[in-house]
């Protein structure tokens, strides 16, 4: 009797997650599978089309613009994920105290994160424009030529990375602060009694205590930065010479400008696979190193 009740109870518990599960299946899993199916068709925005198997994928690997966008995306992730993992940690360590100054700077560093990409790009456009931008005015004060932040193919992705790091620092910093505040105070007191140096405390107590958050931030930022879109779309349209075109912008151009949605869906599957692999590799590598 009690067994039957417990079984009934476990079945009805599913009802609590059912609404979420329903929305999740409809808005995420179904489009994901539909996208996989679509990538095997030659189709436009309004449907139709014919089954072409893996031809869209074969086209992608012959498409120099796509290959360049993949390289650009990896470059951008390499430029942004390390600073977005380390800098917020340093800021959190500096601001993890109960003074008013620390509270003020926590607000300052988080404030950029609440801005929309449109505002962020408008602000940075005014800074980075080589004609009349703030940066060029500063270099002119020293008699130097303006740096072509947005029109030099070698520099443009670095500019995108600077903008992104400035914009995205806030959230990981808050995650680190939250993790730091959960480290028991008595461990630090014990270290103090043992005369442990600041460095020793950091290395042996703080970092191991927040290691899970470091992994979380690294994976989160990796997933996020692979999806770079708004900044190059609004500031450079992927130029100059395609040097700031990431995969998502490529997908947008193909899907919405060219209406070649089967091809765009194939590129989306590749982006999905890249993010999945990068995340899993990161996760397993850090686990193997004994981070628990």
């Amino acid at each position: 009797m009690s067994r039957a009740l417990s079984q009934k109870g476990s079945w009805t518990n599913a009802l609590f997650v059912a609404p979420y599960l329903f929305v999740y299946l409809c808005l995420l899993i179904y489009p994901l599978i539909a996208g996989m199916g679509l990538s095997l068709f030659k189709a436009d925005l309004f449907g139709g089309g014919s089954f072409v198997g893996f031809e869209n994928f074969a086209r992608l690997f012959r498409d120099e613009v796509f290959l360049q966008s993949v390289a650009n995306t990896f470059y951008f992730v390499a430029l942004t994920v390390p600073p977005l993992t380390v800098l917020p940690l340093l800021l959190a360590l500096l601001l993890n105290r109960t003074t008013r100054v620390a509270a003020f700077f926590r607000g300052v560093f988080f404030s950029s994160s609440v801005l929309s990409v449109t505002i962020v790009t408008l602000v940075w456009r005014m800074i980075l424009m080589s004609e009349g931008g703030l940066a060029s005015n500063i270099t002119a004060l020293f008699g130097a030529d303006a740096i072509a932040f947005l029109s030099d193919p070698k520099i443009v992705m670095i500019s995108m990375a600077i903008i992104t790091v400035w914009w995205c620092l806030g959230l990981p910093m808050m995650l680190y602060l939250s993790a730091l505040q959960q480290v028991p105070k008595d461990i630090y007191e014990a270290a103090e009694l043992d005369n442990a140096s600041w460095w020793r405390t950091l290395w042996s107590i703080t970092l191991p205590s927040v290691s899970r958050t470091i992994i979380l931030v690294a994976i989160f930022e990796c997933v996020l930065q692979f999806q770079l879109f708004g900044q190059p779309q609004l500031i450079t349209q992927g130029g100059p010479n395609g040097a700031s075109r990431p995969i998502v912008l490529f997908i947008f151009e193909i899907g919405f400008r060219r209406w070649d949605v089967g091809y765009a869906a194939a590129a989306s599957q590749i982006l999905f696979a890249i993010i999945l692999i990068a995340t899993l590799v990161q996760y397993f590598v850090t686990r193997k190193r004994g981070v628990q």
Binding site: S151, P153, G238, G239, P240, N241, G242, E253, R257, R258
Partner: peptide, 22 residues
Amino acid sequence: ERQFAIQDIVGDEMASAIRGHK
């Protein structure tokens, strides 16, 4: 068809050539 997309491609490549990137 797709004249907007054609405009993007031609402009993209012209800009690359004019600015000496290609």
